[in-house]
């Protein structure tokens, strides 16, 4: 990851609002993510975690607020980003979905080389080399010529991570990456994510895996009802939550 100047956060989200008609999903969210940090977004379903994450790469268009990457606003008017602003921000962010969304008509290798060639303009040799290197990293080099449908869910998600990493994004966004997987399969995906974190990858992770949040995240941000309730290092927040909603949520997920 490229170092940012001084104390400037890599991702700065300020006053983000989003509603669908009457229903407010994000009610003025302000959150910084520093280079190399892993931030876990937790909270009950409907809290706005996924919407917040999807606003960072404009899969959802916010109504108000500012999103900066590396100190630069990603759109002059975030509620109406231009085509070139959208392409630029998506080039810089890597997204991993709950449902993997690999391209089923392409081989695993082609899934990872396609955007490198189309978006970054890499030669097919360079793209292939990078793809194989990433497949090695997620432990799936032998699947290079397979179809995604011939891979298990956990394998597909690791391939999806490699596909996103191939564009060398400055920040990786994970939207409940293990929620569609059985626990024993989730482990292999979480291991890959942990290795990324150890390599200094900046990551924002919407997750229900509190074990992962506790062991890997540098910071946990608790959302409820479209607001950021509190944030802090996982050990402190899990043992001593400052807010009633956080305490209730943690009690529920830890079944205590």
């Amino acid at each position: 990851m490229a170092p940012t100047e001084g104390d400037q956060p890599l991702v700065r989200i300020d006053g983000l609002r989003k509603s669908y008609g009457e229903h407010t999903v994000l009610d003025g969210i302000t959150l910084d993510v520093n280079a190399g940090d892993v931030v876990a977004l937790i909270g009950p379903s409907g809290a706005g975690k996924s919407t917040l994450l999807r606003c960072v790469n404009y899969l959802e268009i916010p109504d108000e607020g500012v999103i900066e990457l590396e100190g630069v606003p990603t759109a002059a008017a975030p509620s109406a980003p231009t085509k070139s602003e959208l392409l630029a921000v998506r080039r810089k962010t890597g997204m991993v979905f709950q449902g993997f969304h690999l391209f089923p008509h392409l081989s695993v290798l082609r899934n990872i080389t396609l955007a490198q060639e189309l978006v970054l303009g890499r030669s097919s040799e360079d793209a292939e080399q990078r793809a194989l290197q990433l497949l090695d990293r997620v432990g799936l080099r032998e699947k290079a010529s397979a179809r995604p449908t011939q891979c298990s869910g956990g394998q597909q998600q690791r391939i999806a991570i490699a596909r996103a990493l191939a564009l060398d994004p400055v920040v990786m966004l994970f939207d409940e990456p293990t929620s569609a997987l059985d626990p024993e399969v989730s482990v292999e995906v979480l291991r890959v994510m942990r290795e990324l974190a150890d390599l200094g990858t900046t990551m924002v992770v919407v997750t229900h895996e509190m074990g992962f949040a506790r062991r890997v995240a540098d910071r946990v941000a608790m959302l409820a009802g479209g607001s950021l309730v509190e944030q802090g290092d996982p050990a402190t927040m899990f043992s001593d939550p400052q807010h009633e909603v956080t305490a209730r949520f943690l009690n529920a997920v830890f079944d205590r």
């Binding site: 790469n57 899969l59 392409l87 998506r90 080039r91 962010t93 890597g94 997204m95 979905f97 449902g99 969304h101 690999l102 391209f103 089923p104 008509h105 396609l114 955007a115 189309l118 978006v119 999806a160 596909r163 996103a164 564009l167």
Partner: peptide, 27 residues
């Protein structure tokens, strides 16, 4: 073609044209 295919292609930075001809049309 599932919405997730559009979202994945868009998130990778493909243009509308690339998205359609490389991802949606073949499927």
């Amino acid at each position: 073609v599932p919405l997730g295919q559009w979202e994945a292609a868009v998130s990778l930075g493909l243009t509308r044209r690339q998205l359609f001809w490389r991802v949606i049309a073949p499927q």
